[in-house]
């Protein structure tokens, strides 16, 4: 289910549409179709369950339920739904992963790195999830 903030998303790519190239926006973006290239926004991204994305993604927050082949860089919060399939490295500040999500790649949290820098006794790290 989409978060409420996507109700009035500036950009929606429907399930029958294919986007090719560098797709950069300024508002919230919903992808339900196919995307090949790159996806970047200074706001939030929602990737639907049937979406097929072969692209690097950069956004502030993201909710992912579809398949992504590419690196994901989220400056704030990343939520992976139970149908998410990620092939690529993932960088975030905060992460939630639903049971059933698949991740083939390295997970890193710039939030954890910052905490580590601020407090050398803090040993918490986000480790890659085993399949």
């Amino acid at each position: 289910m989409k978060p409420e903030k996507f109700k009035d998303a500036e950009t929606i790519i429907g399930s029958s549409v294919t986007v090719k190239g560098d797709f950069h926006g300024t508002g919230n973006i919903i992808i339900e179709g196919s995307l090949e290239g790159s996806l970047k926004t200074d706001a939030d991204v929602y990737i639907g369950e049937k979406a097929q994305v072969v692209a690097n993604i950069e956004a502030e927050n993201a909710t992912i339920n579809g398949q992504i082949n590419g690196t994901i860089k989220i400056s704030q919060y990343l939520a992976l739904g139970s149908t998410a399939k990620i092939n690529g490295d993932v960088n975030f500040q905060e992460l939630s992963v639903s049971r059933g999500a698949l991740i083939n790649g390295r997970l890193s949290s710039h939030g954890a790195a910052r905490n580590k820098k601020n407090n050398s006794t803090d040993k918490k790290e986000v480790l890659p999830e085993e399949e």
């Binding site: 500036e10 950009t11 929606i12 790519i13 429907g14 399930s15 029958s16 549409v17």
Partner: peptide, 14 residues
């Protein structure tokens, strides 16, 4: 871009 009968299957951008 409207391809389905349902408005939920809609593409929108500016």
């Amino acid at each position: 871009i409207k391809t389905g009968k349902n408005i939920k299957d809609l593409t929108r951008l500016t």
